[in-house]
């Protein structure tokens, strides 16, 4: 959704539309996190009247899907791939292998015994 996208590109890594989209979702989630947690608290609190909790539930489901944390997916910062990502290095497995063999990742070396 373009309203969540930054007016000017603010990414320094490999960019394609999927990465821009994921980045926008991350920022949207960050902005709405406090509201989401407050609503989640109301929903889970059994001491509140059922009507309040139901309303909170509805409000939570009616928030934009970009503000949901489940929409966020880790992507490779070198190639934008969405599968086979090593979270510690934010890279896909192949890019990780190439960078590691080239010695660009400190502390990583090929195992051999």
């Amino acid at each position: 959704m373009s309203m969540f996208r930054a007016k000017k590109l603010d990414l320094g890594c490999f960019t394609n539309i999927k990465i821009i989209r994921d980045h926008s979702k991350r920022k949207a989630y960050e902005a709405a996190e406090a509201e989401r947690q407050a609503l989640r608290y109301i929903v889970r609190n059994t001491t509140l009247p059922p009507r309040t909790r139901a309303i909170a539930q509805l409000q939570l489901t009616q928030m934009h899907c970009y503000t949901r944390p489940t929409q966020i997916r880790n992507r490779c910062i070198l190639g934008g791939k969405g599968r086979g990502i090593l979270g510690d290095f934010k890279m896909s497995r192949f890019n990780f292998r190439m960078q590691a063999l080239a010695g660009n990742i400190p502390g990583v070396k090929k195992a051999s015994w």
């Binding site: 990414l11 320094g12 890594c13 989630y29 960050e30 996190e33 934010k90």
Partner: peptide
């Protein structure tokens, strides 16, 4: 966890 998630991609 918003700040941690939002800083995933390196900024320009």
């Amino acid at each position: 966890r918003g700040p941690a998630l939002a800083s995933y991609y390196p900024r320009k």
